[in-house]
Design a protein around this nucleic acid. Structure first.
Lengths: 344, 344
DNA sequence: ATGAAAGCGCTAACAT
DNA sequence: ATGTTAGCGCTTTCAT
């Protein structure tokens, strides 16, 4: 029912090649014929079949994007960035959500590889080792993960945490808790690294509360621990977790930031919409998505080394209302326990 | 670099047809050969090229999904539903975000139509008339819109609003404001219809505050109007707008629900995460997405009339903390102005 | 039960 | 500048 190149050729009285050329490489055909062909094509509502074209050019005009959880606004933003860049480059995007399941990544990678020119693998939960060998012929750009030999787009997580710790230290906080994200998340590892280093440098006492699901419920679950560990401030793996923290603290009637300061990461839109507005480490999410696509495109064109295999973006602390001067460490003073790391 | 059916055929010592059959219609080939072929295929890591297959079968194995705004959690959920159903039916999903721009819908519809077996067009902003004629050969299922001759999945918006009004009336509210969504949104029209009818039935005075962008900023912009119009309760087009309302009210120090009740629609995850938790009309978002895909699949199989062209899902009021008994209409009583519709 | 051949819609040499 | 030919990877008649 849809017009093919053959229909256009017949209607315009030229050969298929001429139609093909008139549409893809207009300079190679006589202006008169070109005009006629293009008019005919428009009339017939002809749209080239990309699958057929791909079969011969080896390029599908599609890219894939795999993310852990679309319901996390962080990834929605990444998707938006990827989409806009893809469309600007005349590509469509296959989006896939793994529901935080590592095994789904490999599976999707394999399934998608045949239908796309390249894949952006965002925040992979799969161990580095297993990543190798999957999708042999497919260009893959990693996002939020750095693995030797793979092109990637990352943000400077460690520096973001440095900014966070210095901010808290300046406010007088001496004991800060961290609600960690997935153990297999590179971002989480980097954040832990930056945290530890900055804590050492500033003399802040850092408490690792353990690994929690990177979701609202994770924050809810961690809140009581944060309060009990004697910290006057708590940093969450991401904003969604911070929101969970805030919710549970609110339910317990704990004033933020008076009794305890809360700091997130990502700067999802929600962060400035709530009250009190969340202090957070901002990540250029859309830009990162765009950068990943740009890297992918560069891989297509020149074997991939022109733009450099890695791209690192900056993070920026955004101070809003959930961080304030440290509360007097009441219990520890009255009890006289000032030893680092043990409060009760 | 990737193995083709030819490679498998050569390695297994059979013809391409046999390989094809052994993989797609196993019963038609000798068990022995079948086993050998399948083993070879696995060894070589053979994955059929869907584009090539699609060229001949006319089926791509892909479906498209077009939504207005991925950063609205409502649509994230729909995407999740669509994805899971698509994958269950061995299809991949192309996702596209129009950024609330009507013109992008038609464009994307056309661009996607060649690469997919069908498209779910979610919450279209395009006028009904223009929808016709686009994508002639493509199966399209509408979501959150009902147009004669098009298969669709909708929710009972009007009934949701009925539940909302009855809830508010039972709490003693006599004057309720509505912050409308996009004029071209079918859901908004349906909500307005349900609202008006229920208001008439219960004797509630309904104030239409005008159309606002279905985003946080829209709610922020509408909050002062809601307060000024003398309503003791305000219903927002959706939860994101309600969040904006809540934010601005909070900033002005207006107690919710004591001074004014707030009611949203959609039941996005955020609604129960904030404080006070938002009363809202819940929509089965993922189910709707799945239903749309199911409808699409049924269209593929039997010309499309088996499952019926329309599917309507229910809405359900979820009472949480932002609605309470009506405040005394202070100004109107002191001022003595009790005339319906004019407060100051 | 299997193979040979044709062709899906398109582009890319290779003529002319 | 244009037409002819071959073939991308696959499925599907049609033979055998």
């Amino acid at each position: 029912v849809a017009a093919t190149i053959r229909d256009v050729a017949l209607a315009a009285g030229v050969s298929q090649s001429t139609v093909s050329r008139a549409l893809s490489m207009p300079d190679l055909v006589n202006p008169t014929t070109r005009a006629r062909v293009q008019a005919t094509a428009r009339e017939l509502g002809y749209e080239p079949n990309r699958a057929a074209r791909g079969l011969i050019t080896g390029r599908t005009g599609n890219i894939g994007l795999i993310v852990p959880d679309l319901s996390n606004p962080f990834f929605s933003s990444v998707v938006k960035g990827v989409q806009s860049a893809a469309r600007a480059g005349d590509h469509s995007a296959f989006i896939a959500d793994t529901d935080e399941e590592a095994s789904a990544e490999v599976h999707l990678l394999r399934a998608l590889s045949k239908q796309v020119d390249g894949i952006v693998l965002c925040s992979p939960r799969t161990p580095d080792a297993e990543l190798n060998g999957v999708a042999p012929g497919t260009r893959v750009v990693l996002m939020n993960r750095r693995v030797d030999g793979w092109p990637s787009v990352t943000v400077d997580n460690a520096d973001g945490m440095r900014q966070a710790i210095e901010h808290l230290a300046a406010l007088g906080h001496q004991r800060v808790a961290y609600v960690a994200g997935p153990r297999t998340s590179w971002s989480n590892q980097e954040r832990e690294r930056g945290l530890r280093r900055a804590a050492d440098a500033t003399g802040v006492d850092l408490v690792h509360l353990g690994h929690f699901p990177p979701q609202f419920a994770g924050g809810v679950a961690a809140a009581d621990l944060a309060l009990a560990c004697g910290a006057t401030a708590v940093i969450a793996y991401n904003d969604v977790v911070a929101l969970g923290l805030l919710s549970r603290l609110g339910a317990r009637g704990v004033p933020v930031p008076e009794r305890i300061s809360v700091l997130g990461c990502d700067d999802i839109g929600m962060s400035e919409m709530i009250h009190p507005a969340l202090t957070t480490v901002s990540i250029p999410k859309q830009d990162a998505g765009r950068a990943a696509v740009a890297l992918l495109f560069s891989l297509f064109e020149d074997g991939g080394l022109a733009a450099g295999p890695h791209r690192e973006l900056h993070t920026q602390l955004i101070v809003r209302a959930t961080t304030g001067v440290a509360s007097a460490p009441g219990r520890r003073i009255t009890g006289g326990h000032t030893t680092k790391g043990s409060t009760r």
